[in-house]
Amino acid sequence: MLPYIARRLVFAIPTLLAVSIIAFIIIQLPPGDYLTTLMADWASQGGAVEAGTVAAMRERYGLDQPMYFQYYKWMAGILLHGDFGISFELGKPVTELIWSRLGFSLMLSLLTLCFVWAVAIPIGILSAVRQYSISDYTVTFLAFFFLAVPDFLMALGAMYVMSVWFGQSVGGLFSPEYVDAGWSFGKLLDLANHVWLPVIVIGLGSLAALVRIMRANLLDELSKPYVTTARAKGISEFELLIRYPVRLALNPLISTIGWILPAVISGEIIVSVVMSLPTTGPLLLRALLAQDMYLAGSLILLISVLTIIGTLISDILLAMTDPRIRLT
């Protein structure tokens, strides 16, 4: 088990490196470097820029140096000082802006993942065990339907329904009175009151995918000889189902975290924009539209890193549940 985890951890390093390079490329993509943008910004606001400041910042970010050196400076800043650079649009260090939003993003993604799993498994089992029944067909059709509706449409639809039919405005994770309040039981309750809709909206697409996978896996497992063996022992049908085929069908399901998680995070970003949730989504969009590239690049980097960590955790989980992976 330990060598397996160690191997996975070592494998993750080049991935992290590659992700940071991609994020850096995105930062560098817009024409002109970041100081020109900054100066143009300040100039447009009528402020003069001291030559000394500019030179200092050029030095600080190594803007006169070749590209790989800038990358090195940027990475060194992050790894050694936790410095992600400055958001010029908001005039603050990136670190000040992102952590709370990243926290909410993480929370939302994890909640969605839990929701998706908790719902997908029983529906998948039902659909497989009652193959070709009315409920199977219904589930299958609904799954296809939700796979076809993009997240943001689902969000818009949900908001439309809530506002027109229930007269509720949807948006944010808190009621206005709690937004700036400190954490309390009331705030938690308020959060719970708001969070379920985005969780469902983000999750439905992945839920549909997962139901399909669970159904297919289980159908595969149900026809395997070990099921007959267990049945020949005299085990009851329900216990048999849970102990053997379902248990085995869960293994490939765990490995889907590797791509469900990126999908959920993608969905979280776009849904947050539509529902104006205080997560990374709206901030990223705003940064990108304003070409506030250090902020945008840092967000993309952190989101990707979180995803890679999530995938790593799912790998380890898989090894824990499947001896074939753990022991060979």
């Binding site: 991609i22 590797g258 990126p262 970003i269 969009l285 990108l288 945008a296 995938t311």
Partner: peptide, 18 residues
Amino acid sequence: ELLRSIPTIPLWMGLAAA
């Protein structure tokens, strides 16, 4: 594997915004 482990939307957004 690397490309599949990156959330697509932020990446697309980053590239498209440029």
